[in-house]
C-alpha cells in the first residue's frame, strides 16, 4: 500500500506536534493567561494574538462531531483503502481535530455523531504517527 501523505517540514508551527506523535502523545496548546485552547497548533492565540502559550497532552477521549465515509479518492494511498471515515472529533479538552475513525467493521453503519471515541495511532515509516480514533 502506498504511504499516506505525510506532514512536511520545516513547518515550525506544527513540528513540535508531530515530533510528539513519535511517542504517541497528542499535544495541544493553551493560552497561559486566558486558558483558551489553541488548535490547530500555531505560535499565537487566534483570539487575542498572544504568544504566551504552552503545550499540553490530551487524554485522547472525545466525541464524533461529524463525519463522512469516503467512497472515492483517487490518491493511491486512499484508493486502495475501501470506504473510510473522515471525521471531526471534539476532544474533551476543548479542541476539534480532523481525523479518521478506524476500528469499526463497517464505517457506513458503525459510526455516528455523538459517538464516544478514543485515540489510537497509525505508525508511519517516516517515524511519525498519525493520530486517529476508534470507538471508546
Amino acid at each position: 500500500m502506498s504511504d499516506r501523505p505525510q506532514p512536511r517540514f520545516p513547518e515550525p508551527d506544527t513540528q513540535p506536534y508531530w515530533e510528539a506523535t513519535k511517542e504517541h502523545r497528542l499535544l495541544y496548546l493553551v493560552d497561559r493567561d486566558t486558558g483558551d485552547v489553541v488548535f490547530f497548533p500555531r505560535r499565537h492565540n487566534p483570539k487575542n494574538g498572544s504568544s504566551n502559550l504552552e503545550w499540553r497532552e490530551s487524554k485522547g477521549l472525545g466525541t464524533v462531531y461529524t463525519f463522512s465515509v469516503v467512497r472515492l479518492n483517487r490518491h493511491p494511498a486512499f484508493a486502495e483503502l475501501g470506504p473510510y471515515a473522515v471525521a471531526y472529533v471534539d476532544l474533551d479538552e476543548g479542541f476539534r481535530i480532523l481525523t479518521n475513525i478506524v476500528g469499526v467493521e463497517d464505517p457506513t453503519r458503525d459510526i455516528f455523531i455523538g459517538q464516544r471515541v478514543k485515540l489510537t495511532w497509525l505508525d508511519q515509516s517516516t517515524g511519525i504517527s498519525i493520530p486517529v480514533f476508534e470507538p471508546a
Binding site: S68, R74, Y84, T99
Partner: peptide
C-alpha cells in the same frame, strides 16, 4: 476526489489535514 496530499509549500493547515484523505466532496459531506 483527490484528497489530500498537497504540492506547494507545507503549511500548518496542510500538515494537519493531508494525512487523513479528506476529499473536497467529503469536506462538504461532513
Amino acid at each position: 476526489t483527490m484528497g489530500g496530499g498537497g504540492g506547494g509549500a507545507p503549511s500548518p493547515l496542510s500538515n494537519m489535514t493531508d494525512p487523513y484523505g479528506m476529499t473536497l466532496i467529503s469536506n462538504y459531506a461532513m
